[in-house]
Structure formats: C-alpha cells, structure tokens
Computed example of a mutant assay.
Amino acid sequence: MNEKWILVLFISPFLLLQSFLLFINAKKRGAHPWFWGIWGLIQIPMPTLFYWFFIIWLPARRKRGM
C-alpha cells in the first residue's frame, strides 16, 4: 500500500471527528454550524483553534468585561 493512502486512512477519522464535534457545538451556540463542520473536514487543527478563540474564548472574555 502506498504511504499516502496510509496517511489518508490515519487522518480521516480525526477530520471526521473534529468536523462532527465542531458542527454539534456550533449548532448549540447558534454559530454557523455548517461553516464550522465543513471547515473541520478540510484541515486539522486550525478550525478547532479558531473556533475556540472566536466562538468560545472571546465572547466569554467580553462577557466578563475584560
């Protein structure tokens, strides 16, 4: 088996899991779930880091008044 296929088979479950979790969490927060879910399928880990920063951390910081 070609090394590229092994890499694809290894990374695919992580991309699917990331996409699923981003979609579900964004849906609960009303934060464009389809955007986050599709972006989660494309690359790893940047969508998760951006989601945490822009959807979770910044609004919580603004809410506390910092």
Rank of each mutant, 00 (worst) to 15 (best):
F53E: 12
Y51V: 05
P13H: 04
F54P: 00
M1K: 11
P47I: 07
Q43W: 13
I56A: 07
L21Q: 09
G37D: 03
V8G: 00
E3S: 13
G30Q: 03
L41H: 02
L22C: 02
G65C: 09
N25M: 05
I11R: 08
L21H: 04
Q18H: 06
L22F: 02
L49I: 15
K27C: 00
L15P: 02
I56K: 11
R29Q: 09
G40H: 04
L41F: 08
P59N: 07
W39K: 04
W57I: 08
P33Y: 01
I6A: 13
K27T: 00
W36T: 02
I24R: 14
L21M: 13
N25T: 11
G30P: 02
I56T: 13
R62P: 00
F35M: 08
S19P: 10
G30K: 05
P59W: 06
S12V: 11
W36K: 01
S12P: 01
I6K: 14
S19E: 06
L17E: 04
M46S: 12
F14C: 05
F23D: 01
G30V: 00
K28W: 02
P33L: 01
L49G: 14
I55M: 09
N2I: 10
F54A: 11
Y51P: 05
V8F: 13
F23W: 11
W39R: 03
I24Y: 11
G30S: 04
G37V: 01
W34A: 06
W5V: 13
W52T: 09
I38A: 12
F20L: 10
P13R: 00
I55H: 03
I44Y: 13
L21T: 09
L41Y: 05
N25P: 02
L22S: 02
P33A: 00
A60T: 10
N25Q: 10
G37S: 02
W5K: 12
S12H: 00
G40V: 03
G37R: 01
P13G: 05
P33K: 01
T48I: 12
K63Y: 07
L49N: 06
I38G: 04
F54R: 10
I11D: 01
Y51E: 05
P59S: 08
K28R: 09
F14Q: 04
F14H: 07
G37I: 00
L9K: 12
S12I: 10
W36C: 02
L58I: 15
M1P: 10
P47T: 09
I38V: 15
L58A: 09
I6E: 11
Q43V: 15
G40C: 02
G65Y: 07
K63Q: 12
L7P: 03
L7V: 14
I42R: 07
I42M: 14
F20M: 08
R61F: 12
L21E: 02
Q18K: 06
Q18V: 07
Q43L: 14
K27E: 09
W36R: 03
L7T: 14
M66K: 13
P59A: 07
S12E: 04
I11C: 11
A31D: 06
K27D: 08
L58W: 08
L21N: 07
